[in-house]
């Protein structure tokens, strides 16, 4: 899956660690999702959507 995590994070001026803290996961997890190495589970994807205040499909999209 592709995602817009990096762009959305930059718009809010959040570091990977800041986003990780909001999601209650490790910075490594955010990095792995952001770089497309790891696709989050549905519950985590919903949490990410909630943190950014956007629907999931505006954050994640098929390759």
């Amino acid at each position: 899956m592709k995602n817009r995590l990096k762009v959305l994070r930059a718009e809010r001026d959040w570091s990977q660690q800041a986003l990780a803290d909001r999601l209650e996961v490790s910075r490594q997890s955010v990095n792995a999702i952001e770089t497309g190495k790891y696709d989050p589970s549905l519950p985590l994807a919903f949490r990410i959507a909630e943190v950014f205040g956007l629907p999931i499909e505006e954050i994640f999209m098929p390759r």
Partner: peptide, 8 residues
């Protein structure tokens, strides 16, 4: 482990 990536 709460962190699913770490668990994986």
């Amino acid at each position: 482990l709460d962190d699913e990536f770490m668990r994986m």
